[in-house]
Write a protein that binds this DNA or RNA. Structure first.
Length: 500
RNA sequence: GGGCGCGUAGCUCAGUGGUAGAGCAUCUGCCUUUUAAGCAGAGGGUCGGUGGUUCGAGACCACCCGCGCUCACCA
């Protein structure tokens, strides 16, 4: 047997030999199709003692117990595991073929449902077909059930590096991983359904952008060959979606990947999923209620509850959520009015809070750091933090009555931000001033300050209706609702360094 | 990027200077309701990599690679 596999070991070599033997005996090891008419869950849920219902199912062999002329095996399909029972005297040649099958092989079976002596609902196989021969050994774990009915898993595949690099294997052998991703999908579907039901339309805007904006972040840079220009991978969708509101849409949203060229840790992946929504003629007050209603819809439709458990905290999403003022919250906690404090006072406060102030150069960042250290960790139950300092928010509209503030809110849950929203700045003259202030910050060394987007300003100059805008970090929302502590556990293929 | 930790068989892990181990998985034999099936036997290793110390290194030292946790930055 020839193979190109460099790392052929005994186990893999053995499987190639079996593959050959199957071919020689006339068993096609890679089938074209198999008609399935049931699944493991249906079989277990709908077993009736007095009926030998016939079923056809397909799945991956996960455990084999051979006893000479009869065998038991478990197969895993998209719903779970089911046991099958095979007898040589009933399936003849196919039993010989089964001897050449392994854990990991994908098979199609036909048979009737029965219960074993020990009470496990199983399929008594009348026909067995190999659908795909597996050539690599799975990191298979064994399962048992203890006296109290708890599942015990032996030698579970736990190596995080391998699990992330070979997610396909992780998904096969760690069923709860699949669960989390099914929830992720359902959460996004629920969001989309809710937005569609309000008649907001889902749109697509450029990922490759000549200028980047809509957030404070460092971009990835790429190059277009025939135009011979550098382009940025978007860090946010905001500025393009607002152009569409200028264009006259009555509410647009986009669920998409954004890219930020920054550090990676358990809450940051270089590419991540954002949902942004813009609704004309509304303000941030309206948007707060919208966020409450949308979150309620997602929680109830996906999880049938508003109560969640996350990192040791019981979270209750019942509305209305608490609202606190950004500036007042800091003042109440520390006695310092960040709006009127001098730079030295802010630095002193930051130092007292244990903030590393060498990294936070500007006043805006200093204030942000202070909030992060003093207030954020206490925001366990859903809380709207409202009315941010203007200098933190170059795209938000000035507060209608409070000097130095903008109409902006972030919702916090379990000490983490889950969304960011504001009454959008629709005054093109003010927007230009804000951009110019950003340029000053950039010139002063703030790499994450905005660039001036002249086309965006031109769009505003045509007339941008008053608009409420919202951004939701989908990965973090999924983490919260599925009780995952690492973003890598809610992204199928998290960014990794190349394999050595 | 800094700090701490980890990397030994397909998987989970022992092994702190003297012949590379265990359980599961794999292979051979027996076994027609088993279920971590069982019984008897067998094979399987570039101990992440490269240098060094030593009579002798999986272990000690240096550097490198990868991963995890954490701090910094951010969402």
């Amino acid at each position: 047997m020839e193979t190109n596999l460099k790392d052929v070991n005994e186990l893999i070599k053995r499987r190639y030999e079996e593959l050959n033997e199957l071919n020689e005996k006339g068993f096609q090891p890679y089938a074209y199709s198999f008609d399935v008419d049931s699944d493991s869950e249906d079989i277990k849920d709908n077993y009736k003692e007095d009926e030998k219902r016939n079923v056809k199912i397909a799945g991956r062999i996960m455990a084999i117990r051979r006893m000479g002329k009869a065998s038991f095996a478990h197969i895993l399909d998209h719903k779970g595991r089911i046991q099958m029972y095979l007898r040589k005297d009933e399936i003849g040649d196919q039993y010989a073929a089964f001897k050449l099958m392994d854990i990991g092989d994908i098979v199609g079976i036909e048979g009737y449902i029965f219960k074993t002596k020990t009470g496990e609902t199983s399929v008594h196989v009348t026909s067995l077909e190999l659908l795909s021969k597996s050539l690599r050994p799975l990191p298979i774990a064994k399962e048992a059930t203890d006296e109290d009915g708890n599942k015990i898993i032996y030698d579970q595949f736990t190596d995080k590096e391998l699990r992330y690099r070979q997610r396909y294997v992780d998904l096969i052998v760690n069923p709860e991983v699949k669960n989390t991703f099914v929830y992720r999908s359902k959460i996004i579907t629920a969001l989309r359904n809710y937005l569609d039901a309000q008649d907001y339309i889902e749109v697509e805007t450029p990922i490759l952008q000549p200028l980047y904006g809509g957030a404070a972040a460092k971009p990835f840079i790429t190059h277009h060959n025939s135009l011979n220009i550098d382009l940025y991978l978007r860090i946010a969708d905001e500025l393009y979606l607002k152009r569409l509101i200028v264009g006259g849409f009555n509410g647009v949203y986009e669920i998409s990947k954004d890219f930020r060229n920054e550090g990676m840790d358990r809450t940051h992946n270089p590419e991540f999923t954002m949902m942004e929504l813009y609704v004309p003629y509304k303000d941030y007050e309206w948007m707060m209620e919208f966020v409450e209603k949308m979150t309620t819809h997602v929680c109830k439709s996906v999880f049938q509850t508003l109560e969640f458990y996350y990192e040791g905290n019981q979270i209750d999403f019942k509305t209305p959520w608490k609202r606190i003022s950004f500036v007042e919250a800091i003042k109440d906690k520390t006695g310092v009015d960040v709006l009127n404090a001098t730079d030295d006072e802010l630095k002193g406060l930051a130092k007292n809070l244990g903030v590393d102030i060498s990294a936070a150069e500007g006043k805006a960042k200093l204030i942000d750091e202070i909030f992060g250290a003093a207030i954020e960790p206490e925001l366990i139950q859903p809380t709207f933090v409202i009315d941010y300092p203007l200098i933190l928010s170059p795209l938000a509209k000035k507060h209608r009555s409070k000097e130095g503030l903008v109409e902006r809110f972030e919702a916090y849950v379990a000490g983490r931000e889950i969304c960011n929203a504001f009454s959008e700045l629709n005054d093109p003259i003010d927007q230009r001033i804000r951009f110019e202030d950003q340029v000053k910050l950039r010139d002063a060394g703030d790499e994450e300050a905005h660039q001036v987007d002249e086309d965006f300003l031109r769009a505003l100059e045509y007339g941008f209706p008053p608009t409420a805008g919202l951004g939701v970090g989908i990965d973090r929302l999924v983490m919260l609702l599925t009780n995952q502590t690492s973003i890598r556990d809610v992204i199928f293929f998290p960014q990794m360094k190349p394999e050595a």
